[in-house]
Design a protein around this nucleic acid. Structure first.
Lengths: 166, 166
DNA sequence: ACTGATAATCTCAACATTGAGATAACAGCA
DNA sequence: TGCTGTTATCTCAATGTTGAGATTATCAGT
């Protein structure tokens, strides 16, 4: 079998035989998969009235454990977005009643973002179906293949300095 | 060793032991890698005054072979974006002199987008360094690992119906 | 030829992100 | 106490994408 990336690489081989485009076989597939998976997940979140970025924030807070709060800085690192984006996200989610801003007493520069009761209930309701949906999208892989794939991807992430989150 | 996704999964295990979040080990890594790789590639393209999306269009046209032209529809499928996005991209690139619109004689609904001489020269100049840069980003993997990774990713892409391009 | 359905592209408002800069607060040290 | 540098967040204009709808052209069947 072959996918769109195989076709793409065959074209390059034809047009520029002087260049070995093997890296596209990895990077091209990662980026196409990311786009396709993102689309699927978006539909799934929409059933709960959530945008993917909203789930991302809710999940980051939820998995950090009680009292379910993190600084804006911790959130933007976890989400890999800029400070402007996090401010915007929190604004919307606060308006929606999913999180609240709590000024820190010790360091008044920072803001702690805390899950509201409603945000907590929502994320706890959504995370199960979300993982089940992810499982469905990966059903083409057997158990050994999943582990192998996860391991290879981790090698790359580590080589690019991807560590910690909170 | 461990990466950010290992940390994330450990937190979930702590907070929601009832859910096995193994799919995040694959999907989370694909999406983080896509973001990190995208950043790196963007810097590289910037050295040639190109945005990533511009290279994407140039490369799609270049690898399609002489006369280096495709319809707007073919381009949007290859880039996995909506029609509005492609119209916008072509507008900008046409203004920059990288591509030109050619009305099709046979089907006057469609527009063929063609590389200009300048666009062709630019993409032929950039593609070599671009692939070399991608190679650098994948240096953490050995030859056998690359093939293995590409193969596993292909299984997923095929299962999601990713085929053809032009 | 006509009519309705389909197809290809463009238009445009809404939206989320970036990136640079502003603001406010903390930390170390003379 | 007063400086200087750093840190945390917010602000805002510019940018690119989406998604729905408009426009124009083709095709199939009658």
């Amino acid at each position: 079998m072959s996918d769109a990336v195989d076709a793409l690489m065959a074209q390059w081989k034809q047009e520029r035989p002087d260049i070995d485009v093997w890296p596209m076989g990895v990077i091209g597939r990662i980026s196409r998969l990311s786009a396709l998976l993102g689309r699927e997940l978006k539909e799934s979140f929409a059933e709960y009235g959530l945008e993917p970025f909203e789930f991302d924030v809710l999940a980051t807070l939820r998995r950090s454990g009680a009292p379910y709060e993190l600084t804006a800085g911790a959130l933007l690192k976890a989400a890999m977005v800029t400070s402007g984006a996090i401010t915007n996200r929190i604004d919307r989610m606060e308006a929606k009643g999913l999180v609240e801003r709590v000024r820190d007493g010790a360091d008044r520069r920072s803001v702690r973002i805390r899950l509201t009761r409603r945000g907590l209930e929502l994320v706890d309701e959504v995370v199960g179906p979300h993982v089940a949906n992810e499982e469905r999208l990966l059903a083409a892989l057997g158990p050994a293949e999943r582990d192998q794939l996860a391991g290879l991807l981790r090698v790359l992430l580590e080589s690019m300095g991807d560590t910690s989150l909170t």
